[in-house]
C-alpha cells in the first residue's frame, strides 16, 4: 500500500510503509532534532492520493 506523510514544515513524502517511515525518521532527525518512531510516523500517514 502507498502512503503519504506530511511534516508541519511542509515537507512531504510518499511510498510504502518502510519508505515513509525511513524518510520521516531521517527528516525528523536531520531537520528537527526529533526521533520519530514507526508508530508516530504511521499514525500520521494516510493513503496516498486521499484528501
Amino acid at each position: 500500500m502507498q502512503y503519504e506523510l506530511t511534516c508541519a514544515c511542509g515537507w512531504t513524502t510518499s511510498g510504502d510503509e518502510e519508505e515513509i517511515v525511513e524518510a520521516a525518521q531521517d527528516h525528523g532527525r536531520k531537520l528537527h532534532n526529533m526521533e520519530v518512531t514507526r508508530e508516530q510516523a504511521m499514525a500520521m500517514a494516510g493513503p496516498a492520493g486521499a484528501d
Partner: peptide, 14 residues
C-alpha cells in the same frame, strides 16, 4: 532554509 521560507522549528533541550 531547508524547511522552506518560514520559521524552521527544531526540538531543543535534549
Amino acid at each position: 532554509g531547508p524547511c522552506g521560507p518560514a520559521p524552521w522549528l527544531i526540538e531543543a533541550g535534549h
